[in-house]
C-alpha cells in the first residue's frame, strides 16, 4: 500500500545502479560467529565439538526450514512449538517404554502433525482467520492436549530406539558412522525442502501468494490449497524436530516452548520477508545455525537464560530492521 507509483524516471536514470548478485549476509554472519566460537573454545574445531553443535542445532534448523514455507506464503505458524511438545509427550505415552513400538509411534506422530497442519491451513484459508491467531489458538490447544494426555506428569524417558534419531550415530557404516543421525536427518530434510521451495512450481506459487494473494488468485493459483500445503509442511517439520529433540531433551510438557519464535527469528535472520513473498530454505537453516551459535557463545560467556531471551528478542527486531533497510537501499521503495 505504501508502495508509491512514482514514475519510473529514477530507474531509467540510474542504469548503472543495477544490483549485483548478492550473497545473503547471513552466511557471513554465521561464519564470523563460528570463528568466534572456535577462538573462545578450540575444542569446537575437533569433530565432537562441531558435530555436537550441529546435532543440537538440527531441530531448530529443520523447524526453520519448515516455518519458511508459511512465512513465504504470507503467514506465521506459531503452533510448531506445541507440535514438538505433543510429539515428545505423545510418543512417550504411546511408547510406554516399549522399544518395538517406535516405528508405528513415529508414523502416528507424523499423521497427527499432518492433521494439525491441515486444520491450521483450513482455518486460515477458508475461515479467513489470520494465521497469527489461528496458530496461536492451535498452540494453546495442543499444549493443553499434551498436558491432558500425560495428566501433567509425563512418563520419565523415551526408549533408546526412539532416542536414536536425536542422540546417536549409525553404527558400522564407513564415514556415516561419524555423523550424528540428527545431522543426517537435517541434511536430508534440508535438501528435500530446498528442492520443493526453489526448484518446483509449488515454491514459486508460495512466493506469489505471499507477495500478492489477489494477483495469485487472478492468475489461477489455487491459493487455498497451496496455503494448506505450507502449514502441513511446517507442522511435519515440527514433528521431525520433536523426534530429534526427544533424543536429547527430557520428556516434559514445555519441551517445545519458545521454539516457534526461535524458528521465526531464524527465518528473519535468513533474510525472509515477514509478510511473505521472499525467503530461502538454506538461508533459514543458516539463520537457525546463527541463532544457535549466538546462544552457544552466550553460554560460553556464561549469561543466564533470561538474558538469552532478551538477546533473541533484540536480534529479531534488529534483523527485521536490517532487512527493511537493505531492501530500501536496493531500490525496493
Amino acid at each position: 500500500m505504501t508502495e508509491k507509483t512514482v514514475e519510473m524516471t529514477e530507474a531509467s536514470l540510474f542504469p548503472g545502479k543495477r544490483r549485483l548478485p548478492q550473497v545473503n549476509p547471513v552466511y557471513f554472519v554465521l561464519a564470523a560467529l563460528l570463528c568466534a566460537i572456535a577462538l573462545s573454545n578450540p575444542n569446537f574445531l575437533e569433530p565432537p565439538g562441531y558435530l555436537n553443535f550441529l546435532k543440537r542445532a538440527a531441530p531448530l534448523a529443520i523447524l526453520a526450514a519448515g516455518q519458511i514455507y508459511v512465512i513465504v506464503s504470507g503467514g506465521f505458524d506459531l503452533s510448531v512449538g506445541s507440535v514438538i511438545t505433543l510429539t515428545v509427550v505423545g510418543s512417550s505415552m504411546l511408547l510406554d517404554n516399549n522399544d518395538d513400538a517406535t516405528w508405528w509411534v513415529i508414523l502416528v506422530m507424523f499423521a497427527i502433525g499432518a492433521a494439525v497442519g491441515l486444520i491450521n491451513g483450513l482455518v486460515v484459508s477458508y475461515l479467513r482467520v489470520p494465521s497469527l491467531i489461528a496458530t496461536l489458538g492451535m498452540m494453546i490447544t495442543l499444549n493443553g492436549a499434551a498436558f491432558m494426555w500425560s495428566s501433567g506428569s509425563p512418563r520419565g524417558y523415551l526408549p533408546d530406539t526412539f532416542r536414536f534419531f536425536g542422540r546417536y550415530n549409525i553404527k558400522g557404516m564407513p564415514l556415516i558412522q561419524f555423523l550424528p543421525v540428527a545431522l543426517i536427518v537435517l541434511v536430508v530434510v534440508g535438501i528435500a525442502l530446498f528442492w520443493l521451495m526453489h526448484r518446483t512450481n509449488l515454491g514459486r506459487l508460495l512466493h506469489a501468494i505471499g507477495d500478492n494473494p489477489r494477483a495469485a488468485q487472478m492468475s489461477g493459483v489455487p491459493v487455498e490449497r497451496i496455503r494448506i500445503f505450507a502449514f502441513v509442511i511446517s507442522s511435519l517439520s515440527g514433528v521431525t524436530a520433536g523426534i530429534l529433540l526427544g533424543g536429547f531433551a527430557g520428556v516434559s510438557t514445555d519441551v517445545g516452548t519458545g521454539y516457534e519464535l526461535q524458528a521465526i527469528t531464524a527465518t528473519v535472520i535468513g533474510g525472509a520477508q515477514l509478510l511473505g513473498g521472499r525467503g530461502s530454505v538454506p538461508a533459514s537453516i543458516a539463520g537457525a545455525l546463527t541463532l544457535a551459535a549466538i546462544f552457544t557463545l552466550l553460554n560460553f560467556i556464561g549469561l543466564p537464560k533470561p538474558t538469552r531471551d532478551v538477546v533473541q528478542g533484540l536480534i529479531l527486531i534488529v534483523a527485521v530492521v536490517l532487512a527493511t533497510y537493505r531492501r530500501n537501499r536496493a531500490g525496493g521503495r
Partner: peptide, 26 residues
C-alpha cells in the same frame, strides 16, 4: 496482476506454473 517482489520471468510464468503439477520443475 503483479507479484512485485518476484522477477519479470516469474511474473510471466505464474499462470503456467499454477496450472502445472505442484512438484513439477519450475
Amino acid at each position: 496482476a503483479l507479484v512485485l517482489m518476484q522477477s519479470v520471468s516469474d511474473n510471466g510464468m505464474l499462470t503456467a506454473r499454477s496450472l502445472s503439477p505442484v512438484t513439477g520443475s519450475d
